[in-house]
């Protein structure tokens, strides 16, 4: 009785409190999100302001292009070839399940190509790059932040956005579409090997199908997407790096934070692209 009494009397207050607390927390999360988003946009603005200096600082940009492009190529090739093979396996298995394989034969290559060019290759490559490149950008800049190297740059009157952020964002924008072309190629090869070996396709069937359904538009969409994903990943890596605090632990946290933020951004942007294009 007494216990019941207490529950009912405190229920009202607690519900109000809980509601307030929920909205309060939600409000704080939203505020935090918009504040952070705003700061990323500010960083983007200062990176864009320094793009004209890219020619004069080409050494920095080229260094980053090498890091991002050549450095990531082996991983991208590995992911690309398996992506293609798995896409082919899923597609052909599906047709086989409904006994439509013979009928679907002319369409298999083309549908694999579409899925790979517009969706799988850009998104999976971007996620891999978010881990490899985004993480390393955040760690490198974060280390510079906590060891006062960013302050030292500032004291030499060298703007960190120009010296560190712009070359990384530029390099990612340029190199990602190139990586995608490689990824697309090996994905088609991977798919080719699978359908030949497992489903005994004639090579001509496969390539004819791709040629028939192939459209440059799809490749361009894929390259556009991946440039955006790459630029955003590099930008977020820089942003997280510049805001690192608290020694080696802080740098570790930044690496994880950069990967989390950029993979979320990639998936959201991919949905937006799907909606718009």
């Amino acid at each position: 009785m007494i216990g019941e009494d207490r529950t009912t009397s405190s229920d009202d207050g607690e519900e109000g409190g809980l509601l307030n607390a929920t909205f309060g927390a939600l409000g704080r999360v939203l505020m935090g999100f918009f504040a952070e988003f705003g700061r990323i946009v500010l960083l983007l603005r200062s990176v864009i302001r320094y793009i004209p200096t890219a020619i004069r600082s080409r050494r920095l940009v080229l260094e980053q292009m090498y890091m991002i492009g050549v450095g990531s190529l082996p991983l991208v090739l590995l992911i690309g070839s398996f992506t293609g093979a798995i896409a082919a396996l899923q597609a052909t298995n599906l047709f086989a399940k409904f006994n439509l394989l013979a009928l679907a034969r002319p369409f298999v290559g083309g549908s694999i190509a579409t899925v790979v060019f517009t969706e799988l290759s850009p998104v999976l490559t971007a996620l891999v790059i978010a881990g490899r490149v985004g993480g390393s950008i955040a760690a490198q800049i974060g280390t510079m932040k906590v060891s006062e190297q960013i302050d030292a740059l500032e004291m030499m009157a060298v703007h960190p956005s120009r010296y560190l952020a712009m070359p990384r964002v530029m390099a990612a924008l340029v190199m990602m579409p190139m990586l995608i072309v490689f990824s697309d190629l090996v994905a088609l090869l991977g798919a080719f090997l699978l359908v030949i070996l497992k489903f005994t396709f004639q090579p001509a069937d496969y390539w004819d199908s791709i040629r028939r359904f192939f459209s440059v538009y799809e490749i361009v969409v894929g390259m556009l997407k991946s440039a955006t994903f790459g630029g955003v990943t590099a930008l977020i890596g820089c942003y997280v790096g510049f805001n690192t605090e608290g020694g080696a632990e802080g740098v570790g946290n930044s690496t994880v934070r950069s990967f989390t933020l950029s993979s979320a951004a990639i998936l959201v942007l991919d949905a937006l692209f799907g909606y718009v294009l």
């Binding site: 190297q149 030292a152 740059l153 009157a157 703007h159």
Partner: peptide, 23 residues
Amino acid sequence: ESERYQMRRRFGYVFQGAALFDS
């Protein structure tokens, strides 16, 4: 911002932890 950078070019700063660029 540009005035601040202009000002800093007249300064030398030795950081407590040296803060050398390690790359």
